[in-house]
Amino acid sequence: MTAASAPTGDNTLLREALPERKIGRVERFLGPENYRIVTGLLKTPASIIGFVLIGFFILVAVFAPVIAPPVGNDPYKIPRDGFSGEPKPMGSEWKRNKPEIPFWYKAVTGKEEWVHILGTAQGQYDIFYGMVWGTRTAFRTGFIVVISTFLIGIIVGSISAYYGGIVDNIIMRIVDIFMTLPFILMALIMAAVLTPVIGKSLIPSIIALISFGWMGYARIIRGDILSVKERDFVLAARVVGVRPSRILFRHVLPNAIFPTLVLASLAIGDVVLSFAALSFLGIGTQVGYADWGQILSFSRNWITSLQNYWYIVVWPGLILVLFVMGWNLVGDAMRDVLDPRMRGKS
């Protein structure tokens, strides 16, 4: 048998027909599928607006001490200008517990002394201060809840997918049961149960949101692991005799985790929304803590005269909507990219 010789001759035509694609360092690091997800996210105008909004809120959170210098020891306590119940309008004079004057203040407002830029809520809590420091609260709760639910989801989902059979069946029925329960009502109950035990703080609501928020991730990661498990490289690893736990953690999980990871990181908007809802219903932090939902909850006592006090709803409401919208815009683009029907189109 003669060895087949490599085709020789001029193959520029072939090269032109199939132009070689340059593979950058980022793409090599992420792998082609994940790279497609990342570039897809950066392409649509909607998701770019989303990223800009998220970036804006990150800046506000990072520079909170510069934007609204803290008064007293605990920066998360909104400074009170007196104790009167009635909200004060925007631009009214700030008499007690004034923050220091930051460098931007005179240039932006043209005033020498602090005023209540966006007015005060019931109990003379400054709305502007609460909104700025509330951004940190939002990110904190968002991150804690998302990371925890993600980890629980990953663990439950991988166990379910990897062992299969009866284990899978039992775990998935438990997931079904949790999904049957109405989310906001159960979170409300959980927070109400925990508040006397732990005390009024962020923690009861955080635990409540974690307890009833992990099921989605477990389902998604389970599905992704089941499909990765069938790939050839897993079979190869099994043939070579790699331990099952090592196959799961070193070979299957890293290849299946990326979509869930991105979805989880974008869920921060939803988490902050549910958290604000709990605060609004009167479950959550102690009065005066910088938290958007709580500032909004003050307005419940002023429903009949909101035409005068509209600023106690509109400003904290606007910032909450923009925050959630930032994550949703990116999340929407994400869903399009992850949609299996879009695969193969770049």
Partner: peptide, 9 residues
């Protein structure tokens, strides 16, 4: 993106 209670208020 609109929380129910913000829209309601």
């Amino acid at each position: 993106s609109f929380p129910t209670f913000v829209f309601g208020l």
